[in-house]
């Protein structure tokens, strides 16, 4: 464990909590892409299957349970509790355009052709594109509420810190995980555009619609 990865995990947790609290406190999920949240819940589900087969550390186990619980809680709030505020008109990104290539790629490019490895690879590739429905929704509605932008900022920060973590681990342990790195860099690039808007436009974002 290094400071970059710890800060990255904390930033990831903060992002998830920001979104969950926003929905819970405002009792509304307007402007939030339920599709992205379902994809994130799917990412955690397919990645953390080893929760019951491999014990790495208390931290690892606790964080996996927390991420799973919070992501399912978010999906529950969007599609059940506050479903009447769900903006299905604008949350229309075709997730099959993400799932099909990701499934295909995870069968082609993986470390071992075993169910657990393929599901893990699927979750890595899926995570890199899971934010697309949310970014699409923001461009469609032409705006993002300030709290949603904080959510995206901390999500992007988590990815950037993971890249720093990989550089650090390569230098100190000679460790690198090619699939995770390639996918993580692609994911971070998607946030760069948003980061630019976030920094130049301040909190409220108006995308050129």
């Amino acid at each position: 464990m290094n400071i970059f990865r710890l800060a990255g995990d904390v930033s990831h947790l903060v992002a998830i909590l920001i979104l969950l609290m926003k929905i819970w406190r405002s009792k509304s999920c307007a402007g939030i892409s339920g599709r992205s949240q379902v994809l994130f819940a799917l990412v955690f589900t397919t990645r953390y299957l080893d929760l019951f087969t491999v014990y790495i550390s208390a931290y690892n186990t606790v964080m996996k349970v927390v991420f799973l619980a919070l992501s399912y809680a978010t999906v529950y709030l969007i599609y059940m509790r506050f479903r009447n505020s769900y903006d299905s008109e604008n949350d229309t990104f075709r997730v099959e355009f993400l799932l099909i290539p990701v499934i295909g790629l995870s069968f082609l490019e993986n470390y071992a052709f075993t169910p657990l490895e393929i599901l893990w690879t699927f979750s890595i590739f899926l995570e890199s594109v899971a934010i697309m429905p949310q970014l699409f929704m923001i461009t469609k509605t032409g705006e993002a509420e300030s709290i949603t932008t904080h959510y995206l900022f901390f999500l992007g920060l988590y990815r950037a810190l993971y890249i720093a973590n990989w550089v650090w681990r390569y230098h100190t342990e000679g460790f690198y995980d090619q699939i995770a790195i390639v996918s993580g860099v692609v994911q971070t690039i998607f946030y760069c555009d948003f980061f630019y808007l976030y920094v130049t436009r301040g909190e409220e974002i108006r995308t050129p619609s």
């Binding site: 995990d9 491999v54 550390s57 991420f67 470390y111 460790f175 995980d177």
Partner: peptide, 10 residues
Amino acid sequence: DDESKPKDEL
């Protein structure tokens, strides 16, 4: 397929 890496990252 190189060996499956240790999955210690979240």
